[in-house]
Design a protein around this nucleic acid. Sequence first.
DNA 1: CGGTTGTTTGAGGACGTTCAAGTACTGTGG
DNA 2: CCACAGTACTTGAACGTCCTCAAACAACCG
Lengths: 226, 226
Amino acid sequence: MPAAEYAHFSSTRLFAEASPQLIDRVGRGAVVQTVPAHTLLLAQGERPAHLHIALSGRVGLLGRSPDGQETVIEFFEAGDVFVAPAVILDAPYLMSVRVLSEARIVMIEAEHFRRSLAADHGLTTAMMRELSRHWRLLVQQIKDLKLRRAPQRLAAYLLSLNGGRAGEIALPGGRRDLAARLGMTPESLSRAFNELKSLGVSGRGSAVVIADSARLQSYCAFDDTV
Amino acid sequence: MPAAEYAHFSSTRLFAEASPQLIDRVGRGAVVQTVPAHTLLLAQGERPAHLHIALSGRVGLLGRSPDGQETVIEFFEAGDVFVAPAVILDAPYLMSVRVLSEARIVMIEAEHFRRSLAADHGLTTAMMRELSRHWRLLVQQIKDLKLRRAPQRLAAYLLSLNGGRAGEIALPGGRRDLAARLGMTPESLSRAFNELKSLGVSGRGSAVVIADSARLQSYCAFDDTV
DNA sequence: CGGTTGTTTGAGGACGTTCAAGTACTGTGG
DNA sequence: CCACAGTACTTGAACGTCCTCAAACAACCG
């Protein structure tokens, strides 16, 4: 494996603790490719052929209902493994993945990765911890959808992007996708931003500024235990 | 470990593939207790002291917002490990767990369990697979909340309880909790049941009968890839 | 039998969507 | 550099879904 690729692998949470030998073994036969924005990486219902890891760029996990509706489950970026459960269980994907901004993606053959998991305890541990982290993200989102109203969800999301602190934030992707991630329409997102203006949130384009984090936190009952 | 307890452990997915030695080692110092309904097992925000596994009965994972609102994230029953991610990552619970119907619960000291994970590859693998399964449940629920309307969510949930087939179904717990799990109020749940009557769903109390599964499936765009 | 709790039903209203139009932004070719 | 199309975002009005509140009804338990 080339040195550049090796460095990227090590920056991944999944391989942060891994030995060079392991990285070499797992990475054998792996393909690294640069994928342009808007590419559909994999589609809901397919059987997983590869494990995907993002080295750079941004992707969106999309859920699709049979009647054509589409929503964003979560954004993932550099260092994230995505839709690993389908690979682990060898079960059809529950969602599709689309590249949002040009990304470098590592693809590891599914069966090869499962064998690697079976052979290496450390890798399995890293995977388990990564799944645990994602599990908590999903639970947090379900709580959001059930307990918060649209403008509060936006407020909480903005805060979580910045670790609960004030400052300037770069939104992950367009507002259409952000709206879907938050479980609302683009129109509602626009109105939600308006609502937050009085709380010190000013935004133009994909750059948003939080002026007063304390006020925003109390507005959405922000809980940073994630 | 007593023979009865041993049998229970083996029936758990987490320990289904485990050797007697491992079960004995992990179970050392574990406490098995019978917990009456309505007991709060653990509370959101606490730091995990034990890993919990249900041997029988039924529990509900509850999310609570700081303003007192409460919702049901998921039901778990015999054989399920719950809120393992908090134990694995040694992070505060994201939710509370309440016993819904009298349950036998195994409690394994958190640090002891983490050591067991570190010592045994097979246990880590089982844990990883269990997390993968739960991950898919949560993703499915997020898709539900974002893409389906209330009566459709009920239809899809009823079908999923019965593997997509027709027949009689026992609801997990009262209708108040079911409503919360589905992201609606008890009133809306009642109206949703009314809506489904014309589709062949008849229910009294906590027993519900699906007459025509095909019709219900097309109504809610049921997708059994879970 | 009355009290308590849980479910149902109805009316009104809040939140968010849909539909439609308008405005700002982006990149392209003249 | 500007006109232009194409897209994205915003704004407004009407509607739909679901929630809230209130009351009636049913079921359960003393």
